[in-house]
Simulated scan of single mutants.
Amino acid sequence: MPRRVDHEERRRELTAALLRIASTRGLQAVSMREVAAEAGVSLRVVQYYFTDKRTLMASGITELAARLDRRVRERAAALGTGLPPRTVLEVVLGAILPTDDDSRADQLAWTAYYAAGLTDPADAVDGRYAPDALERWLTGVVARAVDGGEVPADADPRIEVVSLLALTNGLVSSVLGQQRTVDDALAVVRYRLDRLFAASPSGAAGSPPRGSTAPTIDSAIQSS
Rank of each mutant, 00 (worst) to 15 (best):
L176R: 03
L14P: 01
L138G: 00
A133D: 12
A109V: 04
L138V: 01
A185I: 08
G127P: 10
G40N: 09
E160M: 03
S224E: 13
Y129S: 15
S173I: 11
R210Y: 10
R192S: 13
R12V: 06
T99L: 08
V175F: 04
A36R: 06
S31G: 07
A112Q: 09
D184M: 01
E34I: 04
E160D: 09
R25Y: 11
L176K: 05
L165T: 09
A109N: 02
R104Y: 03
G94P: 03
G177Q: 14
P209R: 08
V30W: 08
D69W: 11
L165N: 02
R86A: 13
A124I: 03
L97W: 02
S42N: 11
R3K: 15
E74P: 00
A116C: 03
Q28C: 06
A199Q: 09
G170Y: 09
S31T: 12
A29M: 05
P152M: 02
P208G: 05
D194A: 13
L138F: 00
R20P: 02
A115R: 03
D132T: 03
A58M: 07
A29Y: 01
G60L: 07
S23F: 06
E38Y: 01
T62M: 07
D183F: 07
R136E: 12
V162Q: 06
P84D: 05
